[in-house]
Amino acid sequence: MSRQKISEIVRAQVSQRANGLCEYCHASEQWQYVRFTIEHVVPISQGGADRLDNLAFACFHCNRQKSNRMMAVEPEALMEVPLFSPRRQIWQEHFIWGSDLVTLVGLTATGRATIAALKMNRERILSIRAADVAVDRHPPDGDLSRSD
Rank of each mutant, 00 (worst) to 15 (best):
I125P: 05
M1L: 10
R112V: 04
F84I: 00
M79W: 12
V135E: 12
D53Q: 10
H94M: 06
C59L: 05
V41N: 06
V105F: 05
A56R: 03
E80S: 12
V135P: 01
R146S: 10
C62D: 09
R51M: 11
V34M: 07
D148W: 13
L144W: 08
Q13I: 11
L118S: 01
R122C: 09
T108Y: 01
F57R: 08
M120K: 00
A56V: 09
E93H: 11
W97N: 03
F95V: 14
A72H: 10
A77H: 13
T110R: 00
V102C: 13
H40W: 06
A130G: 01
K5V: 12
A109G: 11
E123W: 08
Y33A: 07
N19H: 15
S145H: 14
P43L: 09
Q32S: 11
S85F: 03
I9M: 12
R137T: 05
E29A: 05
C59I: 05
A109N: 06
H26T: 04
I38F: 06
S28A: 14
P82K: 01
R129T: 01
G98I: 04
I38S: 06
R35A: 13
F84Y: 02
I125N: 03
G106E: 04
Q16A: 15
D53S: 07
L104A: 06
T110K: 00
V135K: 10
E29Q: 12
P139Y: 11
A77K: 14
N19R: 13
G98M: 06
V14Q: 13
D143L: 07
R137I: 11
L107R: 12
S147D: 13
F60Q: 10
G142P: 04
T110D: 01
L101S: 02
N19G: 12
T37A: 07
R35N: 13
A117G: 06
S127H: 03
I9P: 04
L101K: 06
P140G: 01
L78C: 10
L101E: 12
R35G: 02
H94V: 02
R87K: 11
L107A: 04
I9K: 15
A72K: 08
S15W: 15
P82N: 04
H26F: 11
L144A: 08
S145L: 15
P86R: 06
L21M: 04
G106K: 10
P86M: 05
D141W: 14
T108K: 01
E74C: 09
Q16T: 15
R35H: 07
P82C: 04
G47P: 08
F36T: 03
D136S: 13
P139N: 08
R11A: 15
A58P: 03
E8C: 07
M79H: 12
R137V: 12
V42P: 01
L52A: 07
R146F: 04
A12Q: 14
T37R: 15
S2D: 12
A130F: 03
E74P: 01
F60V: 11
G48N: 05
Q89M: 14
I6N: 13
A56F: 07
R17D: 00
I128M: 03
I44P: 01
G47L: 08
D132L: 06
D141Y: 15
Q32Y: 02
A117T: 09
G142M: 03
A113L: 08
A49E: 09
V135R: 09
D141A: 14
D50H: 14
F60K: 10
G47C: 08
T114A: 02
S2Y: 11
A117S: 13
A116E: 07
F57C: 08
S85Q: 02
K5W: 14
R17I: 02
V41S: 04
H94S: 00
